[in-house]
Computed example of a mutant assay.
Amino acid sequence: MRAARMMTLLLHLQVRGQASGGDLARLLEVSERTVQRDVEALLANGIPVRAVRGPAGGYRLDGGYRTRLTGVGLDEAGALAFLGLAGPARELGLGEMLEGARIKVWASLTGAARERAARSVERFHLDPYRWYGTPEPVPCLTELAEAVWRDRRVRISYVRAGEAADREVDPLGLVLAAGDWYLVALRDGRRRTYRVSRVATVEPLDGPVVRPDGFDLAEVWAQARRELEREVTAVEVTVRVEPRALPRLRRAVPVHGQPLVPLTAPAELDLTVPFENEHWACAALVGLGAAVEVLAPPEIRRRVAAELRAAADRYRDAPG
């Protein structure tokens, strides 16, 4: 443990050039006194670490010293796919390994290569989470990640429509989509997708996972997404919509119907758009309030009108 910490300290100084005792303590999650002891141990082993005094002081390596001990370990290599995605890496329990791998990769770069990498970090950032939302709680994510890493079958308790049911599955991969985690797995030989926030418990089983030949998680996920987004349209609704509501209407309809909704218009316009079912159509259109009028079919127009009248009655006698 201490050896790994001292290596991280050494590589951090090699990358940064100089760092304060407080910065190193936060990086290593130890006290500044522990940092000082580690520096003394490095000095005793011939590593030229110098303490720089003053307000802008700290520690640095003397004489352009560089270590060649920058090999990336197996666990760290497994975390490299998450470079630039520190948040998801922490959720999977890979945060410490990713930081170790990142420091070693940076330490192995020299001159123009390190400058180019630094420019990329300054100019590009990946944020996988959606706006105005917090990630769903995923208390079983780390256990599922462990099962995926080790190719071990699991029994999960999966909650759907308020009821839990046990499922024995072969975990194949985890996917982060729009801020939510999904488990891709086999159940009885057929591919299934589970929302990780609905997994209540995970019980490891003895049997190993037999991964299908040529399994490609990215392609499998893209196929699953296409299948979901191609759901059969159950109802088409003709609406008269004000320009200000067009972006919200576009988000409310299925993917295959979104090209029918422009994002801007000079005046209100009539559109016919699809919905998965009448219930979702009514809920989405009621949410647009007075900015949209349902023209057809008549049964949905009546349902929306009834909902709006009931809402108006509820607020008619409200204080203020």
Rank of each mutant, 00 (worst) to 15 (best):
L126W: 14
G73P: 05
E99A: 14
V138I: 01
H256F: 13
R192K: 11
R192F: 02
G64T: 08
A112F: 06
E163G: 00
E29S: 07
A185G: 08
A283F: 15
R314T: 11
G54C: 02
D216T: 04
R160M: 11
T193M: 03
A51Y: 14
P266G: 02
E32V: 09
Y132W: 12
G179D: 08
A117C: 00
L308G: 03
P128W: 06
R152K: 14
V184K: 07
A112T: 10
S157V: 08
L308R: 13
W181I: 01
G287V: 03
I300L: 15
T233Y: 06
T8G: 12
L249F: 15
D317A: 14
V232F: 12
A234Y: 09
L263W: 03
F275K: 05
L94Y: 12
P247D: 14
P171Q: 12
L285C: 07
E278A: 12
E219K: 06
V154S: 02
E231A: 08
T272A: 07
E168L: 01
P208E: 12
A164H: 02
A218K: 10
R211A: 05
E168M: 03
R187W: 02
G21A: 15
P243D: 11
A147D: 14
V148G: 04
G133I: 00
R225I: 07
E229F: 11
R211E: 14
Y182Q: 00
D270S: 13
A310Q: 13
V154A: 01
G54E: 12
E307S: 07
R190N: 06
A107Q: 02
R26W: 09
A296S: 15
R119V: 10
G93E: 13
R90K: 06
A145Q: 10
L176V: 10
M1I: 07
V175A: 04
R316F: 15
L249V: 11
R16C: 12
A81T: 03
D38W: 00
A79D: 09
V138K: 02
L172P: 05
F124Q: 03
V154H: 03
G207M: 04
A310T: 14
T34R: 08
G100A: 15
P55N: 02
R190G: 05
I156W: 12
V209Q: 07
V49P: 01
F275W: 12
E32C: 10
M6S: 06
A19L: 15
S31E: 15
A245T: 06
L69C: 02
L269T: 09
E96T: 11
L228H: 13
E231T: 10
G95P: 04
E236Q: 09
L9R: 02
E236F: 10
G162I: 07
V49T: 07
G78N: 01
V30R: 09
L9F: 11
A312C: 01
R187K: 05
